[in-house]
C-alpha cells in the first residue's frame, strides 16, 4: 500500500485477519483510496459494520470512528448517528449475509428513507466467518455447508433489491476491477442521498473449497463470467444473460 495512505490505518491492527486470497483486503485498500479521492475529512467519518468477515474491514483497521455493531444492524446504528450529528459521513461496510439476510429490513428501509448513508456490501456469496453456510446471495448451483447437494434457493440481486426500495445511486464491481471500484465508491461517498455499492469478493477458503475452485486465478475467471459490464450484458440474448449480473454504475439519479 502506498505510504501516503498509512495515516488512515491503525497499523497496530495489521496484518488483517483475512484468509489468503480473500478479496476483503483489496476492498479495504479501495475504500481508503475512495475516501481520499472524494476528499472527505477522516475526522468526520463514521464506519459502521455488522458481524462477519467484511465487518472487520473498517474495524479496527481504519483510523477513524468505527462502530462494530450487532449482526445485521449497522445501517440502523448509522442512521441514528447520522441524525444526531449530520456533519458525520456514515459509511456502512458489511457482508451480504449481514446486510441482506438478518439486516435486510434495515437495508430496504434505508434505501427508501434516502438519508445520505453509503452502504458498501462485500458480497462473497457465503457465510465465511461461521464456516461456509448458504447466504441469500449464494447461486442455486453452488455448494455450501447447508446446501451440501447444491440446488439451493434463488439468490437476491442486491442492486435490484435496493433499486426497488428507492436507492438513487447503485453500482457493482468485483474487487478485481479496482480502478472502477474506487471510482464508483468515491462518487457514492459524495452522493446526496442513499448510495449502495455491491463489491464482489472471492472467498477461496469456503466458497472456493466447497465448489472446487482450486486457485484464485480460477476464481477470478469464474467471477469474470458471472459479473459482466452492463453494456456488454445488454447485448447478450436473454438466455445468455441468465445467472449473470451487470457491473458498473447501475443507477445514478
Amino acid at each position: 500500500m502506498s505510504r501516503t495512505l498509512l495515516p488512515y490505518l491503525r497499523l497496530e491492527a495489521f496484518p488483517t485477519p483475512f484468509c489468503s486470497g480473500c478479496g476483503h483486503g483489496i476492498l479495504l485498500g479501495a475504500v481508503v483510496r475512495a475516501v481520499n479521492k472524494a476528499g472527505l475529512d477522516w475526522n468526520k467519518l463514521l464506519f459502521a459494520s455488522g458481524i462477519g468477515c467484511a465487518a472487520w474491514i473498517p474495524s479496527p483497521h481504519f483510523a477513524a470512528d468505527t462502530l462494530h455493531t450487532l449482526h445485521g444492524r449497522p445501517i440502523a446504528f448509522g442512521t441514528g448517528a447520522y441524525l444526531a450529528n449530520k456533519s458525520l459521513k456514515v459509511i456502512v461496510i458489511s457482508g451480504d449475509g449481514d446486510l441482506s439476510a438478518i439486516g435486510g429490513n434495515h437495508l430496504i428501509h434505508a434505501a427508501r428513507r434516502n438519508l445520505p448513508l453509503t452502504v458498501i456490501c462485500a458480497n462473497n456469496s457465503i457465510y465465511g466467518m461461521t464456516g461456509g453456510q448458504a447466504a441469500p446471495t449464494t447461486p442455486c448451483d453452488a455448494f455450501t455447508q447447508t446446501t451440501p447437494w447444491a440446488g439451493g434457493e434463488p439468490p437476491f440481486d442486491l442492486c435490484r433489491l435496493v433499486e426497488g426500495a428507492g436507492a438513487k445511486y447503485i453500482a457493482r464491481h468485483t474487487v478485481f476491477q479496482i480502478r472502477q471500484l474506487i471510482n464508483v465508491m468515491s462518487k457514492a461517498l459524495v452522493f446526496d442521498g442513499f448510495s449502495f455499492i455491491e463489491v464482489i469478493s472471492p472467498c477461496p477458503t469456503h466458497f472456493g473449497k466447497l465448489n472446487a475452485i482450486s486457485s484464485l486465478g480460477d476464481f477470478r475467471a469464474r467471477l469474470k463470467e458471472i459479473y459482466i459490464d452492463k453494456r456488454r450484458l445488454d447485448k447478450l440474448t436473454a438466455s445468455e444473460r441468465q445467472n449473470k449480473f451487470p457491473t458498473g454504475e447501475l443507477t445514478a439519479l
Binding site: L46, L67, R73, A76, F77, G80, A84, L88, N105, H106
Partner: peptide
C-alpha cells in the same frame, strides 16, 4: 424506525454521536 430492533440500534448510534 422499521422495527424496535432498528430503534434501539439507532439510539445507540445517536448516543455515541453525542
Amino acid at each position: 424506525m422499521e422495527d424496535e430492533i432498528g430503534s434501539i440500534c439507532a439510539m445507540i448510534g445517536a448516543s455515541w454521536a453525542g
